[in-house]
């Protein structure tokens, strides 16, 4: 079952894994990705992170991404939970959990979902450093993910 959620409360990655795999004996593999807040970025110490999103569009964009992953690979479910608001170093920012009968699809599906989330889901990071606040610039290399996934599907 696919599920996406945006919340300001702290994330519990283990809970998300348990929720996805509960009562489904078809699942033989679960792959999860946890994005965490680092205390350094571009050479500067970061004390706090603030995540903004576009309520409504963000959830739709996440759902589209997990549906695309489910179309490309034979998955048993996909769960994406993203945190917004204020965070501190070591806090989980996002949890992506993908389940399938066999591990290959789960690995591919999980990497696909986080790659596309970073390119397309409307979230923006603002960092608080000793020098003040600053919006994080998008990494150009995220655009390369599109190219990477163009030729990858369950037929490989």
């Amino acid at each position: 079952m696919n599920y996406v959620h945006v919340q300001s409360e702290p994330l519990d990655p283990h809970r998300e894994v348990d929720q996805l795999r509960a009562d489904n004996p078809m699942i033989g593999a679960v792959v999860s990705f946890i994005g965490l807040m680092r205390d350094m970025n571009e050479g500067d110490k970061v004390d706090r992170l603030f995540l903004e999103h576009y309520p409504g569009m963000t959830e739709k964009a996440l759902l589209k991404i997990v549906e695309e992953a489910s179309r490309r690979w034979d998955l048993q479910g996909c769960r994406v939970v993203h945190r917004v608001g204020e965070m501190r170093p070591t806090d989980p920012i996002v949890v992506v959990v993908v389940a399938s009968s066999h591990r290959k699809e789960a690995f591919l599906g999980c990497e696909f979902v986080i790659d596309y989330l970073k390119m397309q889901a409307p979230f923006w990071k603002k960092e608080l450093t000793e020098g003040g606040e600053r919006w994080v610039d998008a990494r150009i290399s995220d655009d390369e993910a599109e190219e990477k996934w163009r030729s990858v599907s369950s037929d490989d």
Partner: peptide, 24 residues
């Protein structure tokens, strides 16, 4: 929904502009 410059607009639409996204 993600749009580009040629996406048509009509009365009642909601349009948003934002910098490249940085989630995850």
């Amino acid at each position: 929904e993600v749009a580009d410059q040629s996406t048509p607009l009509k009365d009642g639409d909601e349009v948003a502009f934002f910098p490249p996204v940085t989630g995850g």
